[in-house]
Design a binder for these strands. Structure first.
Lengths: 145, 145
DNA sequence: ATAATAGCTGAACCTGACTTCAGGTCAATA
DNA sequence: TATTGACCTGAAGTCAGGTTCAGCTATTAT
């Protein structure tokens, strides 16, 4: 059993955020001792799931829905499974976009490295889009796909 | 040369968003004909960069800074290069976190698949964390690292 | 006994990124 | 000529996800 301060330390989250999550109903099972929140392993795992679902793009109110399903019991396994499968797809798509974005950043790093060396962008403008070096061309095309 | 409506179509962005970006100074070179915005290739490339920098976690005001550097000319190549290198690192870290999150989602998909089959979580609770199947164990450990 | 420390509350406030609104311009078609 | 459609403006509104505030309580240290 942990206090809110300990959990704040463990997860690197402000205490105010933990209280906010609680108020939004993300810890439906949490116990209190004379008014003071007691975080158990259940709540720590909830927090891990919260961070995971948040990163996959879910809003707080939908995370609350998930927590409510957990309380409701075995009858909601299908919904919970479907949720994670949706979020898995979402995140896979998101990661693909991120990698495309990363290629754009790599291209721009190369671009400004050249520009810095040359002191101008004239050579570069002549190379785009058909006379770029092999790897750079890959980044460029992927980013502009 | 494109109108705001055409650009909105091309990029799938609301017109209001394009006007907002303009007001924030993200198209410092944009021309107008009797008050009406004319988007040229410069602005289209600016938009690509905006989407890219936004995805890498930059705020609008920092993107404006970059656009201002572009107007300032060759003397700001080093700043621009440094910016893209920072954002590249940021995004690489971000993608690594995303992949960890993805492993958590994969684990949860497996978990609720089992739970659905079994009708309860008793078996699962007995398996965690040391008696999980090989691949599942990888997801679990990576997610809880 | 008292004071510092960590916890509690509801309500108000904040921030970034848009979006909506009310009212106006302008060019082309009916 | 009048109406339609696409553009324009500044100002106000919205929304999610917190954060801050003022005032209160409970436990531990001196």
């Amino acid at each position: 059993m942990y206090t809110i301060g300990q959990v704040s330390e463990m997860f690197g989250l402000p205490i105010s955020t933990l209280r906010y999550y609680d108020k939004q109903g993300l810890f439906p099972e949490m116990k209190r001792v004379s008014g003071i929140r007691k975080f158990s392993e259940t709540e720590l795992e909830a927090l891990r799931v919260i961070e995971c679902l948040k990163k996959s793009g879910l809003e707080i109110k939908d995370i609350k829905q998930f927590m409510d399903w957990c309380v409701e019991g075995a009858s909601t396994y299908p919904q919970r499974k479907a949720l994670f499968e949706r979020q898995r797809e979402t995140l896979e798509t998101e990661i693909a976009h991120m990698n495309q974005t990363l290629d754009m950043l790599k291209f721009k790093c190369w671009y400004y490295e050249q520009a810095s060396k040359d002191g101008h962008e004239d050579n570069l403008r002549a190379m785009i889009p058909d006379n770029l070096p092999e790897n750079v061309s890959q980044w460029y095309e992927n980013a502009h796909r």
